[in-house]
């Protein structure tokens, strides 16, 4: 909804200035500076469900188990169920109960979200410290603990895209997602 009221004229003015800049002024007069997508790479870390942008590399459940014990278990518990930070494992069949247990396995609809979030924000006190292959490994281990991947699994961009989460159909978009 448009609610600028008295600012509408200012906004129109601003837009026309912008257009004038783009059509007539030298690049040096346009606010900000140009940048190429390759220069943005270090920041371009968001991974949508399509898996677009997933990096090279791969990691195994076994590698993930070691990393988890060393870097994750202190907050999330030895088996991903003990906390004190968010529970990551189990809770299957609980979503319709009065006390649902919402975990990566029981609730999260997309495996790509796990890769994205672990890479951007975990471990809590050193986010961004895991190599891409280690993020694949930790993701693989957590999916294995939730019974989604076998013990000998290895994750890379292609196999992560192929994962279907148990609760993939459990979400309804209140706002049209193709809008």
């Amino acid at each position: 909804m448009f609610t600028f009221d008295d600012n509408t004229r200012l906004t129109v003015l601003a837009t026309s200035i912008t257009l004038a800049i783009l059509s007539n002024k030298a690049e040096a007069d346009v606010p900000g500076r140009l940048i190429s997508e390759s220069e943005i790479a270090a920041w371009d870390i968001s991974i949508p469900p399509s898996g677009a942008g997933l990096p090279e590399g791969s990691g195994s459940v076994a590698d993930g188990a070691e990393l988890y014990a060393a870097q994750c278990a202190f907050c999330h518990g030895a088996t991903g169920t003990e906390g004190p930070a968010d529970r990551l494992v189990g809770g299957f069949g609980s979503l319709t109960s009065d006390a649902p247990t919402k975990t990566l396995g029981s609730f999260w609809p997309h495996a790509t979200t796990a890769f994205d979030y672990i890479r951007r924000a975990m471990p809590f006190y050193a986010p961004g410290s895991l190599k891409d292959s280690e993020v694949y490994a930790v993701t693989a281990y957590l999916l294995h603990l939730n019974g989604i991947l076998p013990e000998d699994a290895r994750l890379d961009a292609q196999s992560l895209r192929a994962v279907t989460m148990p609760n993939a159909a459990g979400f309804v978009a209140a706002y049209p997602s193709d809008n």
């Binding site: 968001s46 991974i47 949508p48 469900p49 979503l95 319709t96 649902p100 919402k102 990566l104 609730f107 999260w108 609809p109 997309h110 790509t112 979200t113 994205d116 979030y117 924000a121 459990g170 979400f171 309804v172 978009a173 209140a174 706002y175 997602s177 193709d178």
Partner: peptide, 25 residues
């Protein structure tokens, strides 16, 4: 399309009685 980040899937979604969750409210 939406990127389906942690905070628009596992958090900030509203769980219905049938166990499904509404996103993007």
């Amino acid at each position: 399309g939406p990127t389906q980040t942690k905070d628009e899937t596992s958090k900030y979604s509203l769980s219905q009685k049938d166990g499904r969750a509404q996103q993007f409210i």
